[in-house]
Design a protein around this nucleic acid. Structure first.
Lengths: 253, 253
DNA sequence: GATTTTCTTGACCAAATGGTCAAGTCGGGA
DNA sequence: TCCCGACTTGACCATTTGGTCAAGAAAATC
């Protein structure tokens, strides 16, 4: 699932915190000059390594992850990993870059002024919940990075994300002004939506333990989506169009 | 203000994952036999170390934290740290134990059957938000631990927390049955409350960056609390008693 | 004041870490 | 066939890691 990942490569990356804004244009390969398109082998290996890195970083954080473990998980010798990504920082940065892009999409595409709030919010929640179910690891890595101080993604937060939140706040305020929903603070509404949906990725272990499951199955995700949607729709008074809300029972199971 | 931390000491702790249930009675000092009460020096130093450890673990996670950094932050030589806590695991376990107790209190005390839902939910949200403001670090450590798979707190989750959630679900179902609020899945409602409130501790860096602040000030916390409360009260239809909801404006600021 | 116990700490150690390197293998174009 | 650049990898290295130790300084106990 997830999304098409851009053909990430390596770059001579500064401490990353310093980089300005836009999450890096296309990167340069670690060796050779090959500025153009990468060979098939390269692409395949980079992919393998990024995937493994995402998983390990998501579990241990930057400091806790070891390149050896990532290499092992990717099925390549450690030296090979360092052939594609000069440093651990580079690798971490590349993994984050791949995530950041995806992060914005759902928000950007669903919360548009033309839609009515109930539909837009419902679809957005559904999409974020699907992401928590199908690709929890990026969410976890994101969380670990932000909890740790967001040093590496500060520019992204301060620029693209801030801009997008402003933009979407206007959309929501438009809905409010049009009487389509009750007044709410748009930014805090967004924070709540992110929190409520991403918790099913980030805190999956806790939720599963409390609900006495080994993993979070589809039923739980359905119930959760329903609960959140109901609460937000009712809470914001965002009834408007039809949108056939299937009255799924949503018992605790 | 946080909570009274129990006079934590050290213990010859197994991998911690294996320990059963209840988060350890009182622990044994690392050296000597002193099973009884600890000397003042010991208590003071243990306190200093635990505090430093909480902060470092909360930023880097277990694997990423180094005992040297913790010792430096606590202002003691590393060897002294290891005098009080034999291993890093011990230290981590002790820090977690101190947090777990506090975790349950708010939930347990606010969501009682006698209260009416609007008051209870409002107070609970307020309390959790205050915790996110005044003591964000425990929340962050908790998050990192759970994201990493919750290996060390699995017993706590499976026993005490699960039990408490069941108990509180009954309270909420009671309210629903009494027509005091709309039907919701109680467990998922709780997950949402935790997510929405703790996000202001865990994701403070992101929220601050998006809102163009250096830190989250009281105004932001007030607006956030208001937004969440409104949403939950309206969303669950938990109007009942008076509860003079001061109609604070809650603009984005 | 003597003795025993608790505490303090610099020096030390084996293991793990991020990263390098040089000597290769491979595959495709001339 | 030869060549050349892309890829592979075991061996290696300096640094950091968690943890120990022994010898001494302070407290507590008598």
């Amino acid at each position: 699932m997830a999304a098409k990942r851009k053909t990430a490569q390596t770059i001579r990356r500064q401490p990353a915190a310093d980089r300005e804004a836009e999450p890096a244009g296309d990167n340069l390969p670690a060796n050779g000059s090959n500025g153009g398109q990468a060979g098939a082998i390269r692409r395949r290996n980079v992919e393998k390594i990024l995937k493994a890195a995402e998983s390990v970083f998501a579990k241990k954080g930057f400091a806790g992850a070891s390149t050896a473990e990532i290499a092992r998980k990717a099925g390549v010798p450690k030296a090979n990993l360092h052939y594609y990504f000069r440093t651990k920082q580079d690798l971490y940065g590349s993994v984050l870059d791949a995530i950041l892009e995806v992060w914005l999409d759902a928000l950007d595409e669903e919360l548009v002024a033309e839609a009515d709030p109930a539909t837009a919010l419902g679809n957005y929640i559904a999409r974020k919940m699907a992401a928590s179910r199908d690709a929890p690891e990026p969410s976890r890595l994101w969380a670990i990075e932000v909890i740790g101080g967001a040093r590496h993604v500060q520019p992204f937060l301060r620029n693209r994300l801030r801009r997008l939140v402003k933009e979407k706040s206007l959309v929501i305020e438009g809905w409010i002004a049009a009487g389509k929903m009750k007044p709410v603070d748009p930014a805090h509404l967004l924070f709540m939506l992110w929190a409520a949906t991403q918790t099913y990725a980030d805190f999956a272990a806790q939720i599963a333990a409390v609900l006495d499951r080994k993993t979070l199955d589809d039923g739980i995700f359905a119930a959760a989506t329903q609960t959140i949607t109901d609460l937000v729709i009712n809470g914001t008074g965002a009834r408007q169009t039809l949108r056939p809300v299937r009255a799924r029972a949503a018992r605790k199971a």
